[in-house]
Nucleic acid binder design. Structure first.
Lengths: 216, 216
DNA sequence: GTAATGTTTTACCAACCGGTCAAATTATCA
DNA sequence: TGATAATTTGACCGGTTGGTAAAACATTAC
């Protein structure tokens, strides 16, 4: 039989899992740096260290590879937001969210760039995910923030734009890494920049969301 | 004579300026949505409403088109930061900077995405500009902010990361427009989102940079 | 061992890509 | 007007791209 994996009922062989892993790892590399259209199967095969037809044995099309990658990565990408806890202390919840997002920008920049590329180019492959799971999760957390503001625990603000602000400021360090490094110059471009960013962003958001003395 | 424009001493004909304009306009459209590698000359020619060889008569290569576009756009892109005035009131300077950047995100999203694509993919064509003019300008404004902080006019903070935060939060509304709209949902996705964003960001940055009572 | 299945490779294709060329067309100006 | 230069087009080229076919090779199950 010659059925590529997608058609099979069960994941049988060890070799299959290994190879698929290998391919997705390479695909992440390539898609993250060139976007979908700018990436070629040959390139991915090269990085993965296998021949193009071999790669196409595991994923029948370029789209299938991209899709598999998105599916695998999207879920873990939303984890930090899921951990955002309604019961916790608002200030420390927001701080940990910022910290977690910054850590992801530092430790998984390719994942960040994969999405950035996709969204920048109009999200042709993930619009369903944006309108579905992502929006649902955000709407839920928006209510949490809104409740905090109503209870006088943080300043009144538009929760959607608060979330956008946290996303953009943190992911910036992954997506615009080259620019950040170039602007900071060589001496300031060590890994310390993430510490500096964390310090700055925590100050910004904590003070920016503080309740002025009179209130509450 | 059959010299394409680049080789000529003076820009002669009216038609030449018109066509180059037309081409760059189309190129902005295409490069902004697909990045350099993901864009094809045919696509640009299509959008510009002319044949591929005709387009190549004005710009000899795809790179030349991209280069011309970058050169034209980069300068105006930095204008808001240039206006950042050391003599002005810090809070209102920062507010107007945010407002100007948001207006650009609203009115010139393609320009924003052009750079975003470029930087995201490692800035292969503009690294010189980043390390040169951009860094110089930023360094200059960093000194301004630092002086304000030293004079007790705003809270102490890392000026580089302040600038990054303003860039990322504002450009987010151009670069990640699809996501912003999808998350906000249809009813909140009118042009009002820029007003809301402006309100939120001004509050965030003004309060976030306020001097606590004791100081100064 | 051997037969069945799973994996990899070689050779290939049609469409597309960036770019050239020469001829045809149009604009400019004496 | 006609000559000259500027512009536009269609045909084409070599290389790349996403993807296929089939056979060679490896692995596993009996």
């Amino acid at each position: 039989m010659v059925l590529p994996r997608a058609a099979r009922t069960q994941r049988r062989t060890r070799i299959q899992e290994e190879k698929e892993e290998q391919i997705l790892e390479a695909a992440l590399d390539v898609f993250a740096t060139h976007g979908f259209r700018g990436s070629t199967i040959d390139q991915i095969a090269d990085v993965a260290g296998m021949s193009k037809p071999n790669l196409l044995y595991y994923f029948r099309t370029k789209e299938a590879m991209h899709r598999a990658l998105i599916d695998r990565v999207l879920d873990s990408w939303l984890d930090p937001l899921r951990e955002f806890d309604a019961e916790g202390n608002p200030v420390s919840e927001i701080c940990s969210y910022i910290r977690r997002k910054l850590e992801m920008a530092r430790d998984f920049p390719r994942e960040s760039r994969l999405f950035a590329n996709e969204i920048l180019q109009g999200a042709p492959h993930i619009e369903d995910e944006l309108k579905g799971p992502l929006k649902t999760l955000v709407d839920e957390k928006v209510e949490v923030i809104r409740a905090w503001a109503k209870a006088g625990k943080i300043a009144k603000c538009d929760p959607y734009h608060l979330i956008f602000a946290i996303w953009s400021t943190t992911q910036h360090y992954a997506d615009f890494d080259v620019q950040v490094r170039d602007v900071l110059g060589e001496e300031r471009s060590g890994e310390g920049r993430f510490e500096d960013a964390a310090r700055f962003l925590e100050q910004l958001f904590v003070k920016g969301l503080e309740i002025k003395d009179g209130n509450a």
